[in-house]
């Protein structure tokens, strides 16, 4: 079919938009830096004030790159889950990844008070939080994988993922109940999500995790396409369903788990971007959708982060709220305009 030409044009346009968003994103922040100086800093030239180059290289660029990685990773894992479960309501967190991360963070922050200080879980900082939340999501994911090997029905897996989510949410509630106001606030701050806390080393780690998740996803494109007809058809066309299901779950775990560990539980992107992309591209072919959702996810995340940064220049709004405030109207508008859901 002659269909590749218009798509490549789309993609060039999208990349331009992405780069623009990236530039805009690093141009705004609590310290106002002239745009020409921003460009100078990126190009490695000397800036008027030495601190500007420092702000851009050690704060804004890592934050923008985090936004790109988190946005594209979450969007891709959302696509994987929606196709695997053939359910438009699925998102990157249906397997309990974010609730696992929340549990890890909650135990780290609030656990000590529950056990009357018998246990102390060490110092609460960005690194230990990232570690605790990734351990949490990894344990929940592992539990889901064990269950997945026992059951054949993928839909049952969806319900089980949701049950794990409720279970961990309940434990977090109990922890919150016994927690002090100060600890509770600390936990809530974590749950707002944050893109700005990554050092270059952490960023590199997130990048590696995302690339591994992406590679597994790319290798799963063919099974993903055949899953559009359902598992039985996919199997009849030679797909090893069990292995594909594992690969897709692992890829999702890496992508969504990595993003959550470093940036907190960021809602909405993973659910909305695949829908957004399907509406715009009007295709279900994962060879197109996979790169498309990643670029859209990155763009949307950058826009959200810019908005979170911008209005009150000294305060940064919680990114987790902005993604929904921006994203929900877009999806509603698209659905109303096209009058029909593409899935």
């Amino acid at each position: 079919m002659p269909q590749s030409k218009p798509y490549s044009l789309y993609f060039i346009l999208l990349i331009v938009v992405l780069l623009t968003c990236f530039l805009v994103n690093i141009s705004f922040g609590s310290v106002s830096i002239p745009f020409t100086e921003v460009v100078h800093a990126i190009l490695g030239k000397a800036t008027e004030k030495a601190s500007w180059a420092y702000i851009i290289w050690d704060y804004r660029i890592p934050k923008s790159l985090t936004a790109i990685l988190v946005g594209s990773g979450l969007a891709l894992s959302g696509l994987l889950m929606q196709t695997l479960f053939r359910n438009p309501l699925a998102g990157p967190f249906v397997l309990g990844i974010s609730s696992g991360a929340s549990l890890g963070a909650a135990i780290l922050i609030m656990g000590a008070s529950l056990f009357n200080g018998i246990f102390t879980f060490g110092i609460v900082n960005d690194i230990s939080l990232a570690l605790a939340s990734s351990i949490g999501s990894f344990i929940v994911l592992l539990a889901v994988m064990v269950v997945a090997s026992k059951i054949k029905d993928t839909m049952a897996l969806l319900i089980i993922g949701l049950m794990f989510g409720s279970l961990t949410a309940a434990v977090v509630s109990v922890l919150s109940y016994f927690s002090t106001a100060e600890k509770l606030q600390q936990y809530i701050y974590w749950s707002f999500g944050s893109l700005g806390n990554l050092s270059w080393q952490q960023l590199l780690l997130l990048f590696i995790i995302t690339v591994i998740g992406l590679t597994i996803s790319i290798l799963s494109i063919k099974p993903l396409n055949s899953l559009l007809l359902g598992e039985n058809y996919a199997r009849s066309m030679g797909v090893n369903i069990k292995r594909s299901r594992y690969s897709i779950i692992i890829a999702t775990g890496l992508l969504a788990g990595g993003a959550t560990a470093f940036a907190g539980p960021i809602a909405f992107i993973g659910l909305a971007v695949p829908h957004l992309t399907r509406q715009i591209f009007n295709t279900t072919d994962h060879r197109i959708l996979l790169p498309a959702v990643m670029v859209y996810g990155a763009i949307l995340m950058l826009i959200c982060d810019t908005i979170a940064q911008w209005p009150a220049s000294a305060n940064v709004l919680p990114i987790n709220a902005i993604t929904s405030i921006i994203g929900a109207p877009i999806v509603i508008w698209l659905l109303v305009r096209k009058r029909k859901m593409v899935f």
Binding site: R86, L227, L228, L229, G230, N232, Y233, R235, S236, M237, G238, V239, N240, R278, N282, T283, T284, V342, F343
Partner: peptide, 21 residues
């Protein structure tokens, strides 16, 4: 499954998951 897929194809009663193809 791959070898079998070149020998036997099926048409089932279950509806296909996505009709947007």
């Amino acid at each position: 499954h791959l070898k079998l897929a070149t020998e036997i194809s099926v048409v089932l009663t279950e509806p296909i998951a996505s009709k947007n193809l």
